[in-house]
């Protein structure tokens, strides 16, 4: 399982990366592995406002549907439309091509309350 050091992690197995004014969000390698083959990602609408821990997206695997929660509050500014045709990118590349959406209107200090890579690795052990 890979857990990049430059990301922050939630207990619900999302990751977030702050890039200036923008937060990029996805699910962890551990999460994609637990879910199994991902068959569909219900992406949020661009412009949607979310609170921290608010419902952001839904990921479906062959067996079940799971909520993806927002690690921090913000407004959806971009979604990864490539996942419409290739949801398996979330399995194959959870931290790169499998990103889910980007948020603006963020308070970057909110990520201080999230887990570091080391904390997350200990959490999933």
């Amino acid at each position: 399982m890979s857990t990049p050091d430059n990301l922050k992690y939630t207990k619900d197995h999302e990751w977030v990366r702050i890039d200036g004014e923008i937060a990029i969000i996805g699910i962890t390698d551990h999460a994609q592995n637990e879910l199994g083959d991902i068959t569909y990602v219900e992406l949020p609408a661009v412009g949607k406002k979310v609170e921290a821990n608010g419902e952001l997206a839904v990921i479906e695997s062959v067996k079940a549907a799971s909520d993806i929660l927002a690690p921090i509050a913000g407004t959806v500014s971009e979604v990864n439309n490539a996942l419409d045709d290739e949801p398996e990118e979330v399995n194959d590349s959870p931290y790169e091509n499998g990103w889910i959406c980007k948020l603006t209107d963020i308070d970057a200090s909110e990520v201080d309350g999230l887990m570091s890579a080391a904390d997350y690795e200990a959490f999933i052990k």
């Binding site: 068959t39 569909y40 479906e60 079940a64 549907a65 949801p87």
Partner: peptide
């Protein structure tokens, strides 16, 4: 009565 159905897309019914 039992029917089969096909969804337009990849999102599944449960």
């Amino acid at each position: 009565t039992l029917c089969g159905f096909k969804i337009d897309g990849r999102q599944a019914a449960r």
